[in-house]
Design a binder for these strands. Structure first.
Lengths: 107, 107
DNA sequence: GCCCTTAATCGTCTATCGACGATTAACGAA
DNA sequence: TTCGTTAATCGTCGATAGACGATTAAGGGC
């Protein structure tokens, strides 16, 4: 399962930075969408935050919608499913996961 | 939540490599413990695999127990709880269902 | 004792990440 | 149109990650 592992690794890499986790938490508590307020919240330079947002968007974890001169970011938790699934497989090897009927991942 | 985010980021970083995911899958399907068979399974040099094992062990995801001249590795899924918790936090608020709340995959 | 196996460590190299300032592009308002 | 705001991009830099061969340390078998 090379390609699946690569996808999961990409998702994990997207979460492998405190600043990106902070951004996700910020989007979580913000029901609507915020623009550059993220820059002030994480305390990093605007270009750095933009890069983190780009990584999160590339991984599919967030979505960006143009709203005039600013951009409306929103969470897309569904993209994390492969990673959540993998962790669930490790945590509960004998118990069936709630959603996937059978994910034959092991060779 | 700085320290918590750092801890979660460390866990995610441990999962952010296909070779390490493969190692975890290998340990999952191996009820007992295997030693250097991991080296042959992942197709990397012995020193490289040893480094991946060190990273996984440092993150607490696996444990290594000396068994004579070889080392017995085992999964420690409990260490992934903070990361699983974080992902669950992201996934939960949008839908109470355990999985696939919506299939909106807007890029 | 000696030798063989196993795994960790060391040293080195390349590639990627993370951060920043500066610049550029897009859009709304005056 | 011009101006101000917002976000992406560029270029650069230092730090880290990843891979490898070679070496070293620890045990078991002879």
């Amino acid at each position: 399962m090379q390609d699946t592992d690569i996808e999961i690794a990409e998702l994990a890499k997207a979460l492998a930075h405190p600043a990106r986790l902070r951004i996700l938490r910020l989007l979580l508590v913000t029901p609507g969408c915020i623009g550059g307020d993220i820059v002030g919240a994480v305390g990093l330079a605007q270009s750095t935050v933009s890069e983190h947002l780009r990584i999160l968007k590339a991984a599919g974890v967030i979505t960006g919608e143009i709203s005039g001169p600013r951009i409306c970011y929103a969470l897309n938790p569904a993209a994390l499913e492969p990673l959540a699934d993998f962790i669930g497989t490790l945590t509960a090897p004998s118990a069936a996961v709630c959603c996937v009927p059978d994910e034959k991942e092991i060779s």
